[in-house]
Amino acid sequence: MREHAPRRRARGAGATLTAVAMAGALALTGCTASGGDGAVRSASGSPSPSPSPTPAWDASPASVAAVGDSVTRGFDACSVLADCPEVSWATGTDDGVRSLAVRLLGAAKASSHSWNHAVSGARMAQLPEQMALAAKERPELVTVMIGANDACRDSVGLMTPVADFRASFEASVRRLRAAAPKAQLYVSSVPDLKRLWSTGRENPLGKQIWKLGICRSMLGDADDMGAAAVARRDTVLARVVAYNEVLREVCAGDELCRDDGGAVFDYRFTGEQLSEWDWFHPGRNGQARLAEIAYRNVTAAGPPA
């Protein structure tokens, strides 16, 4: 606390009482004052520690590891009911997609300095194990896209509770920090499953594939517009929104984490971007759009507003 010189010299008992009162206020509030050497000192006279600087975000990391679910594995992007990691938005090598790793590292280096530990069908509860594997690679950047399978269950009652989702994501971040404390973390939002239903239901073949059991909580009885079906889909959407809020909040608590600001959730996928086999997962075009979103956010001067 810095004191300004009074305009007139204080006189008599009043000045003494004023000085005593100010000293008491300093002792009670723990205000700091500057010592003669310029150091900031507490009321006890001991130097106060300087705040640690916030680490700067590196917009050009030299290696990338990916964790998540079927989207990051390129499921149904190349053939029916099969992974196709070469077209993954995060670490793929396909020239048409130009994955995040390719855009950051170049095609030649991406193949040797990127790793895909995502697993099709994975839910948030499996992410800590994936994160531990990714951390072993000592990557400079880890990408996360997960949560759709936590909402895509056989019924809304089986969806992962939000509290459990949060606990598993927090555990995942702790796993990363324990093994790779300097790794940056990029977190994608969960896609808008209701919008994918609305777009995909226009394709008769896609709806036949949905009947095999893909995301029944949202895609079951795709043409049913009754009150119960509408309420079911709205419940799934609300859970996805809650998951995205968890991802944002947990990421905000880690100084080396950046989320996408809801960009993937907000992206309006069309039939051109969806798999020609299931009209739900991203196809090559959709994977390329996801790579664009990620690259834009990772290389931006600051996090999304």
Rank of each mutant, 00 (worst) to 15 (best):
A148H: 05
D37M: 04
S42N: 11
D154N: 12
L17F: 08
H281P: 11
A148P: 08
S217H: 01
P55V: 05
E249M: 08
A33T: 13
C257S: 02
A134C: 09
A179W: 02
P204Q: 04
V80D: 06
A5Q: 12
V187C: 09
V230G: 12
D224I: 01
L256V: 00
A25I: 13
T270N: 09
S88G: 03
E272C: 02
R7W: 10
V298H: 03
V190W: 08
Q287E: 14
S188M: 11
R216V: 13
A56Y: 00
G121K: 07
A43L: 02
A171I: 01
A15S: 09
A59D: 12
L176Q: 09
G24A: 15
L212K: 07
M225R: 15
Y267N: 03
V230E: 15
T160F: 03
Q130K: 04
T18P: 10
W197N: 13
A10P: 15
G24L: 13
Q184T: 00
T160H: 02
L141G: 11
R9Q: 13
A228R: 10
D154T: 08
L26C: 09
F265S: 01
E140C: 04
V298Y: 04
M159S: 07
R153K: 12
Y186Q: 09
D221I: 04
V241K: 13
W197Y: 07
A13C: 09
L274N: 08
R248L: 08
P304H: 10
V250F: 03
A167I: 01
P303N: 10
D83S: 09
R166C: 00
F165T: 02
Y295N: 12
G147I: 04
T143V: 02
Y267A: 10
L104G: 01
D224R: 07
C152S: 03
V190N: 06
A108M: 01
L290T: 15
T91I: 05
S79E: 14
E129C: 05
W277Y: 15
E140P: 07
G38K: 13
P6L: 04
K207D: 11
S111K: 15
G286K: 08
R9N: 10
T143H: 03
V264R: 03
D221V: 01
P128I: 04
V102G: 06
A288M: 07
R174G: 00
Q208S: 13
R73Q: 14
R258W: 12
M1R: 05
H117Y: 11
W89A: 06
R98E: 11
M145L: 15
H4S: 15
P49S: 06
V162F: 09
K136S: 14
D83F: 11
P139H: 04
R9Y: 05
P128F: 03
M1K: 05
V102L: 09
Q184P: 08
A252F: 00
R2Q: 13
A288V: 01
I214M: 10
H4I: 12
A25E: 06
A231K: 11
